[in-house]
Amino acid sequence: MDRIRQIIDKHGRLPAKAETLRPQQDLYAAGLTSFAAVQLMLALEEAFDIEFPERMLNRRSFSTIEQIAACINELSPKALAS
């Protein structure tokens, strides 16, 4: 979760620091634009060495930190543990 928060800080272009966001908080309401969402996806792919399949490329998958973690976990169960 901390790594996800770091990446959000770097690429999410949010007005608030990611550490202040609850895992279930809506990132779009927090200011995530569709441009930044794509940049965030690309950064997550790079950081966790994963590739998001088409079925995950939607608003919902990237709407909260918890959702992002669930997607990453599904694609690479060990990625978040390390």
Binding site: S34, F35, V38, Q39, M41, L42, F52, E54
Partner: peptide
């Protein structure tokens, strides 16, 4: 412009 960003992800 918007689509060029989306097409960095979408196939």
């Amino acid at each position: 412009g918007n689509m060029s960003n989306l097409l960095l992800m979408h196939r």
